[in-house]
Structures are given as C-alpha cells and as structure tokens.
Design a protein around this nucleic acid. Sequence first.
DNA 1: TTGATAATTCAACGTTTGTTGAATATAGTA
DNA 2: TACTATATTCAACAAACGTTGAATTATCAA
Lengths: 233, 233
Amino acid sequence: MAGSGARSNTSSKGAGKKGTGKRGTGEKSERILDVAEELFALHGYDGVTMRQISTGAKVDVALANYHFGKKLDLFYAVFNRRAESLSNTRRELLRENEKKLKKGQTQTLEQIIEAFLLPLKFAQESRDPGWKNYMALLAYVMTSPVWNEQLMKENFDKRVGEFIEALKKVFPKAKDEEIHWCYHYMSGALALTFAQTGRIDRLSGGKCLSSDFDAAYTRMIPFVAAGFREVCG
Amino acid sequence: MAGSGARSNTSSKGAGKKGTGKRGTGEKSERILDVAEELFALHGYDGVTMRQISTGAKVDVALANYHFGKKLDLFYAVFNRRAESLSNTRRELLRENEKKLKKGQTQTLEQIIEAFLLPLKFAQESRDPGWKNYMALLAYVMTSPVWNEQLMKENFDKRVGEFIEALKKVFPKAKDEEIHWCYHYMSGALALTFAQTGRIDRLSGGKCLSSDFDAAYTRMIPFVAAGFREVCG
DNA sequence: TTGATAATTCAACGTTTGTTGAATATAGTA
DNA sequence: TACTATATTCAACAAACGTTGAATTATCAA
C-alpha cells in the first residue's frame, strides 16, 4: 500500500523519514509552511484550520498531514524553522562583540542591547517577507500563557540567559530582580513591535508605522538603555 | 411560543430586551461572563468553545446564546464589561492630578505615568480575581493584529490620546514620533506584564513572579520615565 | 522499460462546532 | 388562583473540523 509515509503515530515531531527522501523540504512543503506561518501569526493556533492552510498553499488538505503529521506538529515545524537561525545570529553577534574587546574591558550597555536587537532587525528587513510573519508569530508565542513555556524554553531561553549574564557584568551591583524586570520590559516592547497591530499608526495619525521596524529599533536602544541605567545603575 | 428572548438576528451587541428584564445581569449570566473571561484570556477567542464555557459555568450550552447572542457577541460583552470602569478610573486620576497643580505648573512625567498605571495596579490587586483574568485578556487583545483595532479603538484609544497630550506638555520640543514610539514601548512592557506568561519566573529562577504586579509596577515607572527623558528630552 | 519509493490527490470517517426551536421551570403581577 | 414574561434546559440540526486509507501520479535508479 502507499501513503505509509510520515504519519506520526502519536505526536512525534521529526516525522520519521525512511531512507533518502527528506520530508518537508519540497516546494509544496515550504509553501505549506509559509502559509501556515502567516495564518498562525495572524489568527493564532486555534484560529486557523488545516483547510485554510492547504487552500492558501494550493495543495490538498491531506498533504500537510502527510509531510508534517498532526496540526500541532505543523505548528511546531513552523515555529522551529526560523528559530535556530535567529538564535545563532544572536549568539554570533554577542561573541563578536566580546572578541573585539581588549583585556579587562566589558561591553557597553548599548552594545549588548544592539547585539540582542540587531538580528531581529535583520529578520524584519530581510527580502524574505516570511520573516515578518515569523516575528509576528513570535510575538504571539511570547505573549501567550499556553505556548510560552513549551516553545520559548526550548528555543530561546538559553540565549537570553547569556544576554542577562552580559548585563550583570555591566551592572555588578544590581540585584537580579532589577535586571530581570528590566529585561522583561524590553521584551514586552519588542513583542508589541513584532505583533504589528497597527495601533501606533492609528494613535499617531500615521506619523509612525507598525511596519517601520527601523524607526522602532533606533529609538528602542536609547530608551531601554536609559531605563536599565535608572533601575540597575 | 417561548424562548423568543435575546436572540440577536444578525450580530447586534445590545441584545434587544423587551421591557423590564435586563439580560446578562443574573447570577448565571455573570458566571458565564467570568468563565468566558478566564478562558478567552488563556486560549484566545478561537481556542474556547461555547461548551467549555457553559460547562465551566455549570449551565446549559444554550444559555450563553440566550443571554448574549452569538459567540462573538459574548466575547464583546466580556471585553466591554470592565473596559469602561477601567477607562474612567484612569481619567479621574489624570484630572485629579491636574487639579492639584498651581497655575502655570505642569505635571511631572512620573505623575503622568503613575496616573496611567495606577488603575491597572488596582485592578490586578483587586479582591475580584476576575480582574487578573481581564488584564490577561487585555494583553491578548492588545497584541492581536485582528482584535486590536475593533476593540482598543472604541474602548481605550481616546483616553490614550489624552495621556499623550499630557506627555507633549512635558516635552514641548519633542517630535510626535518620539513620544508615540516611547508610549509604544511602555504599552508593550505593560501588555507582557498583564499576559502573565510565567516566563520571568522561569528566567529568573523564581526570583521574580509574573503574578507580582506590584514589583513590576514600582520598577516600571522609573524605567519608562528614564526612557522618555532620553528619547524625548 | 521496469520496479520501487515518494509525493500528491481523492473520498470519506467520526467528532465537535455554533446555533436554534421547542419544551419546561421559575418568578412576578393582577 | 390564573396569566405572562422571563429564565433555563432538552434535543437536535447542518456545517466544519482534523485525520486517514486507498488510489493516483511523479521521481529516479537499475
């Protein structure tokens, strides 16, 4: 019989491939991921049906199941696809900064923040418009009480730990609570920016644009840095 | 025939009552609202079924429809219930501050921010645990690209406009863009706090608690104020 | 070309969904 | 009491849901 492919028995992620053919790497597979990414970012996990995804990707409903397993596995696949590359870029920038330093020197606060934000700016300005959708999906996950733990923990928390360690070196006298709350504020500012709700467009009468991440980025650094210094300095 | 009550023909909000009896004010009605509030805040609009709500409220499935109309109308009813009281408290605190001023004086930045945050702190610390759920629901709406406009516009944008006007008086030389972006950062920090995702608990190893809005609140004021001064001052 | 494997579509399944008409119970008035 | 409007439950509907077995097509090495 045929079609005995990637059907996940219970809820495994990897979709056990057999020999040569890698699942989820074909043309249609990527179209499915792209459409799912956009829709999940806009309407959340429960607000999207498999039929909406397959219709948008111009494939049969069953194909998404064949390649990715259950709907939940597809959601994970969408989230994981860009998570690693994002986290890696972030690590590289942070270590690059560290290498540039002479012995005994520590990074400036602005450098640390910049290293944290820059990859996100790159993502937003990338040619691939999917990155914008992914950032919106990230905002959805970051602010969701149910997804946050299972998705952020595995993919991003470790890198954030490094980021916070670097901050502690800048503010050696600060309490841990102060640093963590300040990071929390920055994280919230970021998440709302990613979400691209269009609210700032409305409130500002068009003078600010949700889509203009460059404007958000350049002002966020001094804003956050000043906040850190006030609370932790 | 019976049961010809509050059935909304198309999608009207008010649920046209007939004479004396007010819909949605009984004991079970409020239980429905409370449960719906909690579930919507946790799982979003699409992540909650009418049956989950009615089960949680220990009533029949049909009762929610009878009192509130369609599911969408119930969602609106939940959101609107506490929106007005929140916005009013905020206005009162802002005007109280203004009255205390002598002629020619303007409010300090901290006072303005405090007037904006205080009602939210009250809400969080209220005896009614429903307020915490509502703040999480607010975070969901604030960060959602699809709900933001239709719900925030009607209920909160006007008050935010007043808040921003007060800020402009503190920073008369600042550009509108700068003030709006700073407000945006503050708004994001707030939203993530409301969401209570538990992430700060995890990252800080339990030293900070998502539920501890008081800790978030006291540090947010100096953090945000310093950021405003850096960017707009 | 043949044969095997992967990719894709087709058709259908058992559930669950929001919603509603009718039946019953409750409360209040005359 | 009887009457009336409201509140609540019961039972069921059509539609949409995620998922899957089987059939069909494409791919590619031998």
